[in-house]
Design a protein around this nucleic acid. Structure first.
Lengths: 224, 224
DNA sequence: GGCACCCTTGACGCGTTCTTGACGGCCGAA
DNA sequence: TTCGGCCGTCAAGAACGCGTCAAGGGTGCC
């Protein structure tokens, strides 16, 4: 089932979208503001996001950037503003499509289909193998010798950032920003703490990690 | 270079698109009708197609289907018709986006960027070769005969400054400023120390460097 | 209220990296 | 030839970063 996250602060629009999407076989989650949206996105890992730019608590662009920090799911922006500058800014921030209100629900559904069609079958297998462990990012599932391993939300986010950059070094700054937020720069003790937990849960020998590597003074690296 | 195929039977629109796209670094091919479009697509294999639905010789939907038969390149539809039914039909036929005329050229370019962004980054990072050694700056990885070589943070910064100025002489002042900060001007012993370490790790014969060269009294130079 | 889970925070030991100083060789200038 | 400047090398203490353990505080569930 394709999971859609609807972010809109107007209850009637959110409700209309939920009903229509659900009627067409999508699994719908809704959020009424930006903070809820980011939290819900981390929890359900949607395959597509329908995002109203006019939110009460934060700028819509911040939500786009917050999502794009770790997710490649298509973002379909809804907005009352038809100005080209606004559209360009949203698209360049990472949105995939931009629809102005009032919109035709049939057209919106078609755009949702178009967006999901791309990412659906083209995506490669979302499971990653780490030695004796398999990680399924989209299903949020980790198995070790067939046994299910539980990860906390923070552990998931950290692992996801690393796994989405296989072989690449990810700086501690970037990890802190993506997992804890842009205000965290020097809390490297968080990273030490959670990397240790991930290694305990994923590595064969946590004291001698083979896949979750430390680059002293720089950051961390996931080696497939 | 990203290749774009523009299909439009109105010469002035085709010309405007060609000029604007070319000015933004795209390689543009144009076609004036459906038959030409399909032939050109087979010839140049574009990364994106901008398609006007109102063509003289065949229905625009046939062109979409003809392309979708073998290509997954994003199709951005242009049309004078704003009816939702038309949009839905085009999107469900395989189009990725639908823009109604008259359109804002800036918005169109933003949609082109959004469409190519998705399918674009399949290429991996650029590597620099230094004799038997390869350096991947974005992944922060050095390999020597396939073996991983570890560099300390300071060594990375120094190497990065040199590699980003291939063939150019970089003065000692500039190296010190970029790596250690603006307060360091005369600590040339730092440079001697770390250049020696880099040569030990990267050069085939550290005593006779071939790529990391000293220019006495001036600075250092990276020769590819 | 009690409990479990998760996130935050502090402290300590150890290995690595950075900094600093000193020595010798090479080369051009006096 | 002698001297001074510059570079490469070596060595040692200082400083830093990392892994680890442990404890406090918040939240949701029973």
């Amino acid at each position: 089932m394709i999971k859609v996250l609807v972010v809109d602060d107007e209850p009637q629009i959110a409700r209309a979208l939920r009903i229509n999407l659900a009627a067409h076989g999508y699994e719908v989650t809704t959020a009424a503001d930006g903070a809820q949206a980011l939290r819900a996105a981390a929890a359900v890992v949607p395959d597509l996001v329908v995002l109203d730019l006019g939110l009460p608590d934060m700028d819509g662009f911040e939500v786009i950037e917050g999502l794009r920090g770790w997710s490649k799911a298509p973002i379909l922006v809804l907005s009352g503003r038809a100005a080209s500058a606004e559209k360009i800014a949203a698209l360049d921030a990472g949105a995939d499509d931009y629809v102005t209100k009032p919109f035709d629900i049939g057209e919106l559904l078609a755009r949702v289909r178009a967006a999901t069609r791309r990412s659906g079958p083209g995506a490669d297998s979302p499971v990653t193998a780490i030695g004796p462990v398999t990680v399924d990012l989209s299903a949020r599932e980790v198995r070790r010798d067939g046994e299910e391993v539980r990860l906390t939300p923070t552990e998931w986010q950290l692992l996801e950032v690393l796994l989405r950059n296989p072989g690449k070094l990810v700086s501690q700054r970037e990890l802190l920003h993506r997992v804890w937020g842009p205000n965290y720069d020097r809390e490297t003790n968080y990273l030490r703490q959670y990397m240790a937990q991930l290694r305990r849960k994923l590595e064969a020998d946590p004291a001698r990690p083979v896949h979750l590597l430390t680059e002293p003074g720089m950051g961390y690296r996931f080696r497939p």
